[in-house]
Simulated scan of single mutants.
Amino acid sequence: MKDKYISTLINEYVNWLKSNITVKQLDEFFEITTPFLDRHNDCIQLYVKKIDKINYLLTDDGYTLTDLEMCGYSFSTPKRKELLNTLLTSYGIENKNGCLITKATHENFAMKKHFFIQAIISINDLFVTSKNNVSNLFIEDVNNFLEQYDIRYIDNAKFTGKSGIEHNFDFIIPKSKKQPDRYLKVLNSPNKSTAEAVLFSWTDIYEIRKNSKMYVFLNDMDKKINSDVITAFETYNVTPIYWSKKQKYIKELSA
């Protein structure tokens, strides 16, 4: 993977973002429509309000959690509440009466907006579980898998990419004598939007951390994963790990 090739891909990605974001004023709020899709294949929207000269409030107006609860994905159990709070904390976001909110300044608005979108994508992916196994969350399965085979890891790690934007990874396996650092993302419901988010994070940090590898755990139990998603990962040297075939990677991850 050549540096010039990666730089071109990052620039094309940023240009794509700019050209596919729309802004509409709604009284004191601005509605920002992004090209990232939620689990209904609708564009993710967030709302921005100016608090004072330099501070802004970002919110989803309660849509993300309300939509999940209306579809039967409640947050009533202690474990689910803990997972939701951990995820939100990792992105610097609060849950205020069902609304996701965060504050930003002129200087960090781009990063905060990026994290907000990533959080919504992650929440959708984390809690949209199989109807036959609603109580079992995929990220828990991956965590238990790493623990079971004594695969050392750091969870919820953040790294700053070439763009200056911070990226969150579900797990990091530190380098050893045999293997470099290994970055892990967990996708319960892999689709075009979640794949794009992972690939942007990977390409952005790769220029700074070239001696590293990227893996994505994909939940293929009771569902078929689109071949375009797999092709996209492989094109960018990201190793897709089907959950049904995870045993094949124990030696590689534990090395």
Rank of each mutant, 00 (worst) to 15 (best):
V48M: 12
T33N: 00
D42E: 15
T34A: 08
E31F: 03
N55W: 00
D52S: 10
T34P: 06
F36K: 05
C43S: 15
F29G: 02
Y47N: 06
P35D: 04
D27L: 14
D38T: 04
I51F: 03
F36C: 01
L46P: 05
V48I: 15
K53H: 13
I44W: 06
H40D: 12
Y56M: 10
E28M: 14
N41T: 08
E28G: 08
F36P: 01
N41M: 11
K50L: 03
I44Y: 01
P35E: 02
D27F: 15
C43M: 11
F29D: 00
T33Y: 00
L37N: 03
I32C: 11
R39N: 09
L37Q: 06
D42G: 09
F29Q: 01
I54P: 02
R39Y: 15
P35S: 04
F30E: 14
D42I: 07
V48L: 13
L46V: 01
R39S: 13
L26W: 09
D52R: 08
D52P: 00
Q45R: 11
K53W: 07
N41R: 08
E31I: 03
T33D: 02
D38G: 06
D52C: 01
Y47C: 10
E28S: 15
E31M: 10
N55R: 11
T34F: 08
C43N: 15
K53Q: 14
K53I: 06
K49H: 12
K50R: 15
Y56E: 08
L26N: 11
I54W: 04
I51W: 07
F30Q: 13
K49V: 04
F36V: 00
D38Q: 03
K53G: 09
I54R: 13
I44T: 01
Q45I: 03
I44Q: 04
K49Y: 12
L26I: 15
I44E: 01
F30H: 12
C43D: 12
L37S: 02
L57H: 10
N41S: 11
V48F: 04
L57F: 10
I54V: 10
F30L: 13
I51P: 01
F29L: 12
I51G: 03
I51L: 13
K53R: 14
K50S: 11
T33Q: 04
L57G: 01
L57V: 01
F30Y: 14
K50D: 07
I51S: 05
D52T: 04
F30R: 14
D27I: 07
D38F: 05
K50A: 08
R39W: 12
Y56P: 02
D52L: 09
D52G: 08
E28T: 07
I44K: 07
Y47W: 10
L26D: 14
D42K: 13
R39M: 13
P35I: 05
L26S: 10
P35M: 04
Y56R: 10
H40Y: 13
D38K: 01
I51K: 14
P35C: 02
F29R: 03
L46K: 03
H40G: 09
D27T: 07
F36H: 06
L26T: 06
I44S: 07
L57A: 12
F30A: 14
K53P: 02
E31L: 13
C43H: 13
I32L: 14
